[in-house]
Design a protein around this nucleic acid. Sequence first.
DNA 1: ACTTCCGGTGGGAGCGCTCTCACGCTGTCG
DNA 2: CGACAGCGTGAGAGCGCTCCCACCGGAAGT
Lengths: 359, 359
Amino acid sequence: MKTSSPRPLRQVAPRSSPTLEDLAVAAGVSRSTASRAINGGDRVSPEAQAAVDRAVLDLGYIPNRAARSLVTRRTSSIALVIPEPDVRVMMDPFFAVVITGITEALRETDVQLVLLMSRTDDDSSRTLRYLRGGHVDGAIVVSHHEADSWARSLAETGLPTIFIGRPWDAGSEVTYVDTDNLGGGRLAAQHLAGIGRRRLATVAGPADMTAAVDRLRGWRTGLAEAGLPEGPVVHADFTTDGAAAAARRLIAEHPDIDGIFAASDLMALGVLEALQAAGRTVPGDVALVGYDNHAVAETAPTPLTTITQPMVEMAVKAGAMLLEEIEAPGSHPEPVIYSTELVERASTSVAPTASAANA
Amino acid sequence: MKTSSPRPLRQVAPRSSPTLEDLAVAAGVSRSTASRAINGGDRVSPEAQAAVDRAVLDLGYIPNRAARSLVTRRTSSIALVIPEPDVRVMMDPFFAVVITGITEALRETDVQLVLLMSRTDDDSSRTLRYLRGGHVDGAIVVSHHEADSWARSLAETGLPTIFIGRPWDAGSEVTYVDTDNLGGGRLAAQHLAGIGRRRLATVAGPADMTAAVDRLRGWRTGLAEAGLPEGPVVHADFTTDGAAAAARRLIAEHPDIDGIFAASDLMALGVLEALQAAGRTVPGDVALVGYDNHAVAETAPTPLTTITQPMVEMAVKAGAMLLEEIEAPGSHPEPVIYSTELVERASTSVAPTASAANA
DNA sequence: ACTTCCGGTGGGAGCGCTCTCACGCTGTCG
DNA sequence: CGACAGCGTGAGAGCGCTCCCACCGGAAGT
């Protein structure tokens, strides 16, 4: 059996940095006083505080985190869990944004961010072990699909956890931040209807992702509000190629479509490809709305009208909420939903190819 | 004075997981034997090992990392240092790739990745403190520009460190991995010369980044080898907008250019923009080569011929090398340079707009 | 005046682990 | 047949820190 950690540890390094004891001696106080001075300075006389501060500088004292966390049972680090089996998804700038945002939230803290990526199921259980092992004070889980099982498991361990993106089984005990995917989908429908398109279809994301489902629901709501029929729906996997294939099907079966909502910009790119291959112009014959305001939305052959969401803010908020919950365990903050906006670009503008329109 | 860590620690959490002592009791052995069994099982009888293994499972024992690292002086974690003052740069998929690669290298290990981003100078000194504080066993530094000072500082602390991208002052004591920027630049020159372009120019990167400098040097070498003059060189900051401005200048001053090498795909996008604005066709009037094989190279209005480099491999290697150096301190591995390749796309293809060519 | 209180302090225990060391115990060799 | 390996084991110390508690002196209360 190999239940042990993969790598045994080796040799004791030569002692290096000064200890609290050294500090105390240098400052002419006791270890206890030195400790108090280091940690906020409650119940420490100004003189003692000053002496310790000076000694810290002189000695270049840096507290030993391991020793500290051994006794406090706090690690001053949080985990960012990315349960993505797929390398490709990691390429999504989304993660860069999330990381940037969380880092930002941690800025004034001495909390460190530990990255936990699990690509296989095996990793996944390791990750869970790590999380329950008390190695971190809290976790932020990027909920792409499979986060469902995580949500339960983590909630049970009592480890403060924030989800980015509503997890499937978001009971009241699960805290998350998300963008208003419902509103975003609705916005897309409103916009396409607003520029006079009437035969609308959507390339939705995978039905096992809350974001995809919500966007689709919003889309349907928007259509209903505009008095339009539901229209055809095809699902794709949030990739360009997958969407291209889906769009080809869509176009073949519904050749009269004059507006498409793709639930991501990457997918919109695929739709664009399929439309052009089918000899349709954009936005002339078919107007196209993407989602995410991804970099490619701007550089696409036909720049994409798309839905934008404050992702950095959302990530910052997630970090802040986690910090809060760590500080005050048991406080279950309400989920926070960020609103979305539509960015208009060429793919739905009436100007260039003035063939559609009637508004 | 506030030399202390920003956040004082609070309340002791109720004890949770079983300790080694509990394990030992459950397995009917001593703490020492349990410890040995957990850590590789040297000098442990099969019976004892089995008993401990069973107890581990029964109790769900997870070793306390803090306690362990307190005595071993090893933390089983490494830092990824990203000394980037600029949020935008973080958006670069480059980082996602680097993170993915390092994670991959750490897969079979129980080593965790800690993210250290420093945006301000202030952060930077904090980061340095953290690194010398013995909180990690090693560091991987993404060397974009300012890594010079880091290289020295870290080398001095004796912390095993690997740079991704050659740092400026790479003495023999600095270990790094990099791609063959020299070769990449040369490849671009060869390719453009090979398709018969003769009046070549380049939009180079900032002169304070080794990658940019090397690409430029390689470019010049390639030109010389092809018997072509050096041609105009303009510098930009690796952004699309910056490159567009630089390219406008270039076109204005050298209207007869028939080939351009942009030192990044993002910059190539800007060049493309400027060329189209100036009424030049690509590749008809001007052939264009980018660098990086970034996602946008494929989705660009005119798909870009570009230089591709095995970035994931490079990151994996960096991780592996660091692990090695941690395991065997003092071993100073040789720098590893990955070769580059040219990917041909429409921006230099002679087919579509058959006006240039002569080979 | 004696108690009471409280801010400042130091001693000591102990967090959970690894590692050194000494102690049997079985073989194996002179 | 005594000596000497060498393996498996357990006791104990101690890593650097925080926290509880006891202490002390001076200010305030009765």
